[in-house]
Each structure stands twice: as C-alpha cells, then as structure tokens.
Amino acid sequence: MADATNGKRIAIVTGSALGLGFELTRRLIDAGWFVAGVDFNAERQAELAETFGADSYQAFVGDVSDEAFVNDAIARIADLGHIDLLINNAGQPSFKTPTAYEAADVDKCLKGLKGMILWSVATLKADGEQDLKIANVMSTAATRGNANESVYCATKWGEKGYTQSLKAAYKGTSVKVVGVYPGGIDTAFYRDSHDYVSEEKQHTFMDPGQLADVILFNLVNAANLTVSDILIERNYV
C-alpha cells in the first residue's frame, strides 16, 4: 500500500471539501503532495476524489470529532506512508448575541477543538512523534474577544491554548506546530449567520485562494526554519 502515493509527501487536511480547506488541498496537490482529505460532505468528497484521482487524493467522510472515525482514518493513511503534514482546518461557527446561545451552539463550536485534539494525537502516534508539522487553522477570534461571538471566541481561545501547549511539549524536536489565525474569509462559512455577517459584508473579506497561497508560502518551504504563528488580517477599505 505504501506505493499508492508514488513517493509523494502525505498531508491530511480536515474540512477539505470547500472554502479554505479546498484551496489548501488543491494547492498542495498541485505542488506534488498526496492529500488525505477529511470532510462530512460525502457528495463533495466524491467529486474531489474523481477530480484529483487516486494517486493524489483519498477522501475520508465523517465527523472530525468522532474518535472511532479519526482512529480508523489515521490507520488507513499511515498504511500509505509517513504523514508529513496535518492541517486542522475543520470547524463550524455560531454567531449570536450572548443571551441567544444554547447548548447545541456550544457543542457545534466545540467540534473544531475536539477534532483538532483527536487528529493531532492520532497523527502524532502514527508518526512516532517524529518529523511532523501540525498547522492549526483557527481565527483572529482566538486573539481577541468579539461581540456576538462569545462561544465561538471561547472555543478558538481553547484551540490556541492547545496549540501553544503542543509547541511547548515538542520544543526542540522534529515535530513543528504552527498556529494560523486568519481574519474573515469570503466563503459560505457565514451562510447561517447572514443576520450578523451580511453577504455584502462577507464579500469584502479575504479571498480563500489568496489566503491559501499566503499560508502555504509560510507553512511549506525548503528553508531551514519554521514560521510558528501566521496572523493574517484582511485589508479594510
């Protein structure tokens, strides 16, 4: 099974079906990587598997916060070879006034944090805690408090805490951990929150393709260095 990638470096991208995750996936494949893409959107995953081909993309359909799914997927990916890069990109928003939040909103936002932890742990184990780069895509919401994003910010601050703790644990080793903090992106991420982020406002946000270029320029390069934090703000006009 190790020959299935034809010697390509292996990356895992969660939330690979649409938006920033798709743009990161497409660019990695264009650069010669094999991508294991993870998303709950089965229809879109089938499209990507056909588009990219089995020699460049393998689709995994499931909930990123489901531990059994994570462990099964990692075992199958590890059979292909050493995992070089994990991009924890999957997450779901919930933008509401402070008193409008309910337990379901908390659970929805926490899926990203839980998934980040599960995929990181499983990948670290599969790689023997060696020669791995983990990129945790969060949000500028992990760096400040925002009105009407109290629960979303809380979970993003949790993701930042986990990311910083991983950095401390693997300092001086061949495991590198990168925190990625983008501002607003012009994607369907806001489709359920257009009372808070209108479509007109959404379209002033960053282009996901351009953002993916900036992230990968800093994340994947031949230089003997690691950019440990990538904070990207959109231009205000």
Rank of each mutant, 00 (worst) to 15 (best):
E67I: 15
K96R: 14
A36L: 01
I74P: 04
G112S: 12
E129R: 10
P93A: 15
T5F: 02
A142V: 13
V137Y: 04
T97Y: 13
L124E: 04
K8E: 14
G15T: 06
V61S: 03
S139V: 14
A54K: 14
A103M: 12
V38S: 02
L132K: 03
E50M: 13
T140R: 15
D55I: 02
D39A: 05
G19C: 11
D66A: 02
E129M: 09
G112T: 06
V121T: 15
G112Q: 01
V38D: 04
E43G: 07
F52R: 06
S16E: 03
C109D: 15
Q92K: 14
K125E: 06
F22K: 12
F52L: 15
S120Y: 01
E50L: 13
D127L: 00
V35E: 14
V70N: 04
A11R: 00
G32D: 04
P98L: 07
R27V: 07
A36I: 02
G7P: 14
W119F: 11
R26L: 11
I12P: 01
N89V: 08
I77L: 06
S16Q: 05
L24V: 14
D131Y: 11
G32A: 08
A90P: 02
E23M: 13
T97P: 06
T5V: 11
V70W: 00
G21N: 06
S139N: 06
D107V: 05
D39I: 08
Y57I: 12
S120C: 12
F60S: 01
L24N: 01
G21V: 09
T25Y: 05
L80D: 03
D107L: 13
L20S: 09
A68V: 13
F22T: 00
L28N: 02
L20A: 13
K133M: 03
A73Q: 05
R27D: 12
V61F: 12
T25E: 05
G62M: 12
V38K: 00
L80V: 06
M138L: 12
D72T: 05
A54G: 11
T51Q: 08
A59Y: 08
A90R: 01
L18E: 04
D30M: 14
Q92P: 01
T25K: 03
V70Y: 04
L110S: 08
Q130C: 13
A122E: 07
R76V: 02
